[in-house]
Amino acid sequence: MREFAYGSAESVEQAVAMLDGDPDAMFLGGGTNLVDLMRLGVATPGRLVDISRLPATVEQNEDGALRIGAAVRNSDLAADPRVRRGYPVLSEALLAGASGQLRNLATSGGNLLQRTRCLYFQDVTKPCNKREPGSGCPAREGLHRDLAVLGHSEACIATHPSDMAVALTALDAHVVVTGPAGPGRIPMDEFHRLPGDDPTRDTVLRHGDLITAIELPAPSELSRNSGYRKARDRASFAFAIGSVATAITVVDGTVTDVRVVLGAVAHKPWRARVAEQAIIGGPASAHAFEAALDLELSAAQPFPDNAFKVPLVRNLAVGQLCRLAGVEMSVGSVGAGTDGAGR
């Protein structure tokens, strides 16, 4: 591990000032990903600015909107009664991620900024365009079983590992940032990037930008009728091989609003807008959900060893939408109980 200087910030302003003009410096939150990447030699900061002691509160505004401080720990957020009741998809996604120990350390802001768990990215002896631009992507021909099936590029087929980010995308959250260029408020769906020809950048943030909060709109019928489902290789404490955050409202058998966001299939949480448009205004039925997901996933470009993800996330989404809409899964649907999500 490279030697580094350490300082602890006591205010947002101080934190931003400590990083400004020092391209070698990084913010340190809970450290669950950054410290590991430093140990692996993937991250090599010359200075760490510890922001884990900045205010960590969850506050509800007068209009009901929830403002989650960036330093709020994942465990606190998952247990918050306002989150559990108003936005169950967020609580479920948080509890589906990592372990009790890691959730106690991990911060809300840091969760969004964690890096891909692509094996090549984490191994400095291997080429990786995300880590070392222009060095190549061995995953295309190599181990890509856990990697992207949507929105990937010639340069990078990594997936974003966060469960929380998938839920936040379904909740129309905003990421509140400040930095050398001043404050900003970024819609969750625009916060993470597709890799394109610059996979080094996971998000739209620039060096020195600091996430200060995550904002959720006031709880609604839609957000309260939401949920998260995750498929993984063991029953607990593993990254998703496919996941889905959904929310739906149904009036007299007709879908009035819906969110479908797929996780572990792309470089960012995949808002399935094509499927959403196909579902809204139509009947709440398994067949309608299946057709909508098939339409969305017709854009998928899987690799030889991860083609299974396409039916996996389809079935997760259909099963979850049926459950939330209170409708029967269709007879013979592969979505019925065979999605491996274990819940």
Partner: peptide
């Protein structure tokens, strides 16, 4: 494992469990 994956290093920080391998000592002040 020294990567936060096994839990053998678990300690309590302010009464809450945490992987001590992923906590920088300087940040535990």
């Amino acid at each position: 494992c020294d990567h936060g994956q096994c839990g053998a290093c678990t300690v309590l920080l302010d009464g809450r469990r945490a992987n001590s391998c992923l906590v920088l000592a300087v940040a535990a002040q």
